[in-house]
Amino acid sequence: MPAEVEKWYKAVTKDDVIYLFKGEVTDQLIAQSLDIIERQLESTPLPIRKKIYNVLVECLQNLYHHSATCPIEKEREFCGRVGVCLLSEHEGHYHVVTGNFVEPRQKEFLTKHLDKINSLDRDGQKEMYKEILDNQTFSEKGGGGLGMVDIARKSGSRLNYNFINCGSDYNFFTLDVTFN
């Protein structure tokens, strides 16, 4: 139930939040957010700054292209096509966290896809990236899963994810990327 989503939201926003967005992601919002994030990260050293920026670009664009619309209308805070994206710092590590509603077929795809990425080491992820890049045709909307492999490679850590069931087959998909 979305009460669980609200619980998740409270938990992820308790750390030092550097950037937080909750709402419907539009192309304008992405441009504005990236501008803000860039200024916030100005004093962060280069390799990590670029990694975080790249991951945030992919995450925001994932929300823009793939967020489903939650059909439960009576819920207050988390309804419609709402997405969450935040950057926080906790115990010396940066985290990029996202949340959005997904349809059952997306849940199936993401589970298979993220488990595969997490099962691979660095070289395996590199090969997977190149294989998707070179061998699959993909549309303007979707990158055939390239974004998630890129996020894993750039962050160098496991993609922690979860699905919070919201009834009627809909799930709220959460992703937590840690930068080591």
Binding site: Y53, V57, L133, G143, G147
Partner: peptide
């Protein structure tokens, strides 16, 4: 300086 995965296919 930066490119996203959507661009990576186009660059290819």
């Amino acid at each position: 300086e930066y490119f996203n995965t959507s661009s990576s296919k186009c660059i290819l």
